[in-house]
């Protein structure tokens, strides 16, 4: 028996919005420690890794490890039927071929349930090596989304250059060149407005704008985003999900042809 309950459906809606542009379907691996999802996008350029800890749920029970393959378009249709403040419960029997998603209004006067067919997905799990990153940048998630959106107008690629002075995002194309520099913030009143750079050595890497823009669909989940970079390895873009877990996106760099 698997049962996981969250106080607000809005969290699950935001999580789905953060992955459904990259993935058509995905396997949710459930165990007593929580829910994990790892999947590559269709073109095998990026990898999405979602971790939801069992202690972040209002109620969590998972007697046997369970892998639930879900069509994310179908899940989105079901979640559209929930009000943001509704409680949401996911339930499945051991070895079931369906999952039940139930919404309850705060006053318990409306209860709806949706049974969704599960899929058998033949998904490859990748081993992600431990990396000592050369640069780790923490910045407001909204600012990162704005930069990715703005620079995508000028080129398919963005160059991220990180030094101890700051981080520079550049794009160059037919229109010309765009550069956005962010300096590390001195003192800020609000922690969520800070730009913090931890640098071991400077790094310059090139990434495809369309994936970065897809990752920024996670912006509503978190006030801050963390970018971890190292020469010739994938960029890690991480959004914390408060008291519940995190979503990490790994993006392979563009390399010299």
């Amino acid at each position: 028996m698997f049962e996981a309950r969250l106080g607000q459906a809005t969290i699950l809606k935001k999580i789905l919005d953060a992955i459904k542009d990259l993935l058509n379907e995905a396997t949710f691996d459930c165990s007593d420690s929580g829910i994990q999802l790892q999947a590559m996008d269709n073109s095998h350029v990026s990898l999405v890794s979602l971790t939801l800890r069992s202690d972040g749920f209002d109620k969590f029970r998972c007697d046997r490890n369970l892998s639930m393959g879900m069509n994310l378009g179908s899940m989105a249709k079901i979640l559209k039927c929930a009000n943001n403040e509704d409680n949401v419960t996911m339930k499945a029997q051991d070895n079931a071929d369906t999952v039940t998603i139930m919404f309850e209004s705060a006053n318990q006067e409306k209860v709806s349930d949706y049974e969704m067919k599960l899929m058998n997905l033949d998904q490859e799990h990748l081993g992600i090596p431990e990396t000592d990153f050369s640069c780790v940048v923490r910045m407001p998630a909204m600012e990162f989304a704005r930069i990715c959106r703005d620079l995508a107008q000028f080129s398919e690629s963005v160059v991220i250059c990180c030094t101890k002075e700051g981080v520079k995002f550049s794009a160059s194309g037919d229109v010309g060149t765009a550069n956005i520099k962010l300096a590390q913030t001195g003192s800020v009143d609000k922690e969520e407005e800070a730009v913090i750079i931890e640098m071991q050595e400077p790094v310059t890497l090139t990434f495809a704008c369309r994936y970065l823009n897809a990752f920024t669909k996670a912006t509503p989940l978190s006030t801050q985003v963390q970018l971890s970079m190292c020469a010739d390895v994938p960029l890690v873009v991480e959004y914390a999900i408060k008291d519940l877990g995190h979503i990490r996106y790994y993006l392979a760099p563009k390399i010299e042809d």
Binding site: H44, L47, H125, L126, P253, K254, I255
Partner: peptide, 14 residues
């Protein structure tokens, strides 16, 4: 000129 690398160039199958 740059070309897009694949994620499996970096991460191995488990």
């Amino acid at each position: 000129k740059t070309k897009q690398a694949g994620i499996m160039n970096f991460f191995s199958k488990k």
